[in-house]
Design a protein around this nucleic acid. Structure first.
Length: 479
RNA sequence: CGGGAUGUAGCGCAGUUGGUAGCGCGCCUGGUUUGGGACCAGGAUGUCGCAGGUUCAAAUCCUGUCAUUCCGACCA
């Protein structure tokens, strides 16, 4: 009986069917539910709470750097979307159109924003007059719509939540510095808060954002060896400014075009958390964004003093941590499994034996190790445990990435490495020609992810054509 | 967008040659339990994804459609 029950609630083994495992976690950890429209997911309270924590953390970081939040409309008139040529070409195939208002056909159809560059540009043209108006440092939290063909929860949904920063600067240098600064914010957030190691790099020209001069990105390697673009930061130069006629009077009293950036990250990061840290027991959440950082489970709760001790513990911890006391009448074993599925970083068990001894049992989610901890000074012990979880998670993720990173000099070496060790990051040299980028993809199935900012010399010639190499590129299969 | 698979109770599934729907878990009530998904007894829950069609009769056969999922091509 017990076995049957376990089977019903169990998730697919991660290493047996990674895709199915991922989907199971999304549903069983109560992160999402499906709606009746393809690719549009319902983010449930537990999933949304993760997003809120991500938002809070990043929003504080943005504001500390002088950015202000704004809100733009969700509709873009077709003529406005069409103003920048590369931009339209990039997004037109995947926008959703509004053609009617009530029963009446609109004279001009409106697209549901797939991104808001055009709206920001239209607005910037109206508000930027003088060099004194610069820089403009805006950000917006909203949802955007892209009519994807293949959809997956968090990783690729037709509507997704994100943040898009849009800034305007006097000089190209200043805008470029902003672009890199924000890339670093994302990288720091991923590594320190999400415990996800990332590679910072520049996209190859074929992989740039539609309308950007340079696209920077951070790439993270998931447990199955596929890469996830976790955030992007774009340097626009003055291309959009020219297309939208945004000018300002400079100090020398001449009209100039400002330089622009945009940068964003999405609910996709939640998918990244799942695929980087999750295991066969379910989700594993980084303490920094976990809706519940500590769960307290009273054991033998009916025995005198147990609930009182658990409540006292809860009161002690709640000032410093997001803590939950589960005093429901489920069995302790059920609760252990439940909060493991939900990825709660630290679990505290407290029963009669512990109370007697003035201690509790502390279990860290990422390695399921149990430790006996004194109730005296428990706040600091829990803080240390949470740090231990974050560090352990990072180390584990980094170890997986190192294990799956291959330096290759030839296409054959790439195929051999992937064949032998499975998917991962391939470091290989590139001449800079798009034909060779395509050539690598055709010969090995992996694509260029980015040109890392930190370059290494893996060889002197292009892995594809053998001509002199210009960059070391990281290649991988991607989500 | 192409190829495969799947839609029956909240979840996992069964349902034979067409005859009007069942099992396990969960849920509710009562009791006993409680240190790794407890046990006993009783109870409630369904337009069989949706729309057409064939038939005296459709969960079952046919057509269409929507959604989920996997594999490719495209994209955060």
């Amino acid at each position: 009986m017990a076995n049957e029950k376990k089977t019903v609630e169990q998730i697919t083994n991660r290493d047996v069917d990674f895709a199915q495992w991922y989907t199971d976690i999304c549903k069983k950890a109560d992160l999402i539910d499906y709606s009746s429209v393809k690719g549009c997911m319902i983010i449930r309270p537990y999933g949304y709470a993760i997003w809120e924590n991500i938002q809070k953390n990043l929003d504080d970081r943005f504001k500390a750097l002088g950015h202000e939040n704004v809100y733009m409309p969700m509709f873009i008139p077709e003529s406005l979307l069409n103003k920048e040529k590369d931009h339209v070409e990039g997004f037109a195939p995947e926008v959703a159109w509004v053609t009617h208002g009530g029963e009446e056909k609109l004279t001009e159809r409106l697209c549901v924003r797939p991104t808001s560059e055009t709206l920001f540009c239209e607005h910037f043209a109206n508000i930027i007059r003088s060099y004194r108006d610069l820089p403009v440092l805006y950000n917006q939290w909203c949802s955007v719509v892209r009519w994807e063909k293949t959809t997956r929860p968090f990783l690729r949904s037709r509507e997704f939540l994100w943040q898009e920063g849009h800034t305007m600067h006097e000089t190209a240098e200043e805008a470029r510095a902003e672009t890199v600064q924000m890339l670093n914010v994302y990288a720091d957030f991923h590594q320190n808060d999400l415990a996800i190691p990332v590679i910072k790099g520049v996209k190859t020209p074929s992989d740039k954002f539609a309308g950007a001069e340079d696209t920077y990105a951070i790439e993270a390697l998931m447990h199955d060896g596929k890469s996830l673009q976790a955030a992007t930061s774009h340097f626009f130069g003055d291309g959009f400014a020219k297309a939208f006629d945004i000018t300002y009077a400079s100090k020398d009293n001449t009209l100039k075009y400002p330089f622009q950036t945009s940068w964003g990250c999405t609910t996709r990061m939640i998918g990244g958390i799942i695929m980087t840290h999750g295991d066969d027991n379910g989700l594993v959440l980084p303490p920094s964004v976990a809706p519940i950082q500590v769960v307290i489970i009273p054991v033998a709760a009916h025995k005198p003093g147990v609930i009182e001790a658990a409540t006292a513990l809860y009161d002690k911890l709640k000032e410093r941590f997001r803590v939950k006391l589960d005093d429901s009448d489920q069995s302790p074993g059920w609760k252990y499994a439940e909060y493991e599925m939900k990825g709660v970083p630290v679990r505290i068990e407290i029963g009669p034996r512990d109370i007697e001894a003035g201690q509790c049992v502390c279990v860290t989610r990422h390695n399921l190790e149990k430790a006996v901890v004194a109730l005296d000074g428990i706040e600091d012990s829990v803080a240390a445990k949470l740090q231990e979880v974050r560090d352990g998670m990072y180390a584990k993720a980094l170890e997986n990435r190192e294990k799956r990173t291959y330096s290759c000099r030839t296409l054959d070496e790439i195929n051999e490495a992937l064949e032998k060790n499975g998917d991962g990051f391939v470091k290989a040299m590139w001449c800079g020609e798009e034909e060779c980028e395509d050539g690598v993809k055709a010969a090995t199935g992996i694509g260029s992810r980015c040109i890392p900012l930190e370059q290494e010399n893996v060889g002197d010639v292009c892995v594809c054509c053998g001509k002199p190499a210009r960059h070391m590129v990281v290649w991988a299969r991607a989500y």
